[in-house]
Design a protein around this nucleic acid. Structure first.
Length: 290
DNA sequence: TATGCGTGGTA
DNA sequence: TTACCAAGCAT
């Protein structure tokens, strides 16, 4: 089964795989790591332009670690979840101090880096170092749940069972397993999508248990919808947007103009300060951290 | 294990 | 228009 899968996916990927900038020849391990962190919960189409500028400005961990937090947060722009930018900054410093500026190739070393979890560690080890590990993101979990178990979707959170199920499908050989992992993820992103799987275009449909059972998706949202409007997250987003576009510290009055509810406003501001995304300066003013 | 954390495209 | 959701991580 693994060999059949690997063959089908490899052929499909050769024709349909996207030409993403970080997949091009010569991309460093650091470049792959940056692309993975940027892509955590942010669509790839929005990541690409920022990644290209980012790598031209800070080509390696040492140069990036030397940048100020404010510059990093401004360059992050509107990718969302700016805490990721700070974790990436810490990550670069750790790569320099612990690994001499070289992104490690061992899973355990990668996992110990700030902002790097199970998925991202495996992605770097496999996509750049070409190791044989399961790379399990939401796309892979969905494809495996459908293909191997016949379920309409995977569970809410990644479980060790998900990791085992994906690992069981890996073909033999480091290089083939790495190619397989890239292609499996791409299939989930392009064909076996959450809302509208296109089984007619799927290279592995003939052995898919979900397809065999009719490929019927349950109605309604696949997960509990996450609210945004009116949340602290929205207010944090407005404060960060204001701070990104101003060089001088902003006054409390300026921040008060961003949201009408004082309690929500304060919660957002103190949260940002706690997270290290905002710095209070004398005179009751605020700016991006330096 | 459940929750909080941004943003903008799409139907 | 509103609502869903897109390569997770940390707590």
């Amino acid at each position: 089964m693994s060999e059949w899968l690997a063959g089908r996916l490899s052929d499909w990927f050769a024709v349909h795989g996207r030409d993403l900038p970080w997949r091009r020849e010569g991309t460093t391990a650091w470049g792959v790591l940056v692309s993975e962190v940027m892509s955590q919960q942010t669509p790839v189409s929005r990541v690409a332009p920022t990644w290209t500028e980012w790598m031209a400005r800070w080509p390696d961990p040492a140069k990036f670690a030397a940048a100020s937090q404010a510059d990093v947060l401004r360059a992050w722009g509107r990718l969302g979840y700016p805490r990721r930018a700070l974790r990436l900054h810490e990550c670069a410093a750790a790569v320099v101090s612990l690994h001499g500026g070289r992104v490690p190739d061992e899973l355990a070393d990668l996992l110990a880096l700030p902002g790097v979890g199970t998925y991202t560690a495996a992605a770097v080890a496999v996509f750049h170092y070409r190791r044989r590990h399961a790379v399990v993101d939401t796309n892979v979990r969905r494809v495996v749940a459908r293909f191997a178990a016949g379920h309409a979707d995977a569970g809410a959170a990644t479980t060790s069972a998900d990791l085992r199920a994906a690992a069981a499908l890996l073909p033999e050989g480091d290089a083939r397993a790495a190619d397989f992992s890239v292609a499996l993820m791409e299939l989930g992103a392009l064909v076996c999508t959450a809302r509208k799987p296109e089984c007619g275009r799927c290279p592995i449909a003939e052995r898919c248990r979900f397809k065999a059972s009719g490929a019927v998706l349950p109605p309604g949202p696949s997960r509990r919808p996450q609210r945004y409007h009116g949340t602290t997250r929205q207010v944090r987003g407005r404060i960060m947007a204001l701070l990104r576009e101003t060089t001088e510290p902003v006054t409390r009055v300026q921040i008060e103009g961003l949201w009408h509810e004082p309690a929500r406003r304060e919660e957002a501001l103190t949260g940002l300060i706690t997270d290290g995304l905002v710095e209070a300066v004398p005179g009751d003013r605020f700016r991006l951290p330096h």
